Amino acid sequence: MSDATPTTDGEETASTGDAGSNDTDRPADGESAAPELVGEALAVGYPGTEEPVVECETLVLPRGEVTALVGPNGSGKSTLLKALSNRLDPETGSVVLDGTEVQSFGSKELARKLGLLSQENESPGSLTVEELVHHGRYPHRGFFDSVDETDRRAVERALELAGVEDLRDRPMDGLSGGQKQLAWIAMALAQDTDVLLLDEPTTYLDLHHQLRVMEVLRTLVDVREVTIGVVLHDIGQAARFADNLVAMKDGEPYDWGPPRKVVDEALLRDVFRVEADVDVDHPTGPHVSPHRALDETEGR
């Protein structure tokens, strides 16, 4: 197992300590009230696999920040996210939400605290977008409770944030892949949790809507101090919008920390097998200029 630990000045070093939050950079009296999500001594696999798919000594999603999980296909990003959201039981280790193991929560109680947008989303085609988004409110209502004003406000806010207000009356089966993705994002936002995990939320979206989604996530952090973990394929987007990056390689964290400390030519070569230049001084975050894909034997 492995982890990556930020030093007090933000430098990243391999160690057996915690991949902790940047509390040294935040005044004690100004700490976010959002929960912190921690995975400890994790070994995660699937039925039928002899060896764990992911092994991680310590992983922290710091409270009130965006943490992006990046890496090539098969590196364990989505598997790790499933374990963090209690959708996949780890073989060993635990996932702790503000001091309490996630497995100890009831399903509805956990859904009020932690929201997950996975890649596997299926909905009856007859549902309208607004009806789908209303499903995000289920953890906040009893079985016989009707929709109240709090629910309606949450749904309206979610439709607006996701930019799908004009689609509210459209049936899901009449939408494009990108429109469906935005509707699912709106449903996750309507759940109104303090921790939100998203697995490749920008898939199927054009560049305009990709940026819109990432801007929404930044707004949730900057305004509501939500704790966010997001799996992304685009290292450039992750470097621009995330407070922290966890780079995954072969089922283990390769490096962890602020984008300007983590994203460099060595990361692109070793993790993504790409030759690239990285401008770490770019105003919006590390700017990646890829040149070519490396052969398996190059740069090892």
Rank of each mutant, 00 (worst) to 15 (best):
K249M: 13
T227D: 00
L220I: 01
I235W: 10
V213N: 05
D234E: 10
R224V: 12
A190V: 11
R224H: 15
A239I: 04
L211A: 14
R224C: 05
V213R: 09
A239G: 11
A242I: 10
V231G: 03
L196I: 09
P201L: 01
Q191T: 06
M187W: 01
G236Y: 09
Y204E: 10
V230S: 04
Y204K: 04
V230N: 03
Q210A: 07
V223T: 14
G229I: 01
I235Q: 12
T193W: 06
Q191F: 07
G236F: 06
E225T: 13
V246E: 12
T219K: 15
Q210V: 08
A242V: 09
K249C: 08
Q191I: 04
Q210D: 02
V230P: 00
L245P: 07
E225V: 14
M214F: 11
A239N: 04
L207D: 01
Q210K: 13
P201H: 03
R224N: 10
E215I: 13
L205W: 08
A239V: 04
T203Y: 06
D250C: 05
D243H: 15
Y204D: 13
G236N: 14
V226M: 00
R240V: 08
R212A: 13
L220P: 00
L197I: 07
L211E: 14
D243G: 12
T193V: 12
D199L: 01
V230D: 09
M248T: 02
L245W: 03
L232P: 00
L196H: 04
Q237P: 00
L205E: 07
L220N: 00
D243M: 05
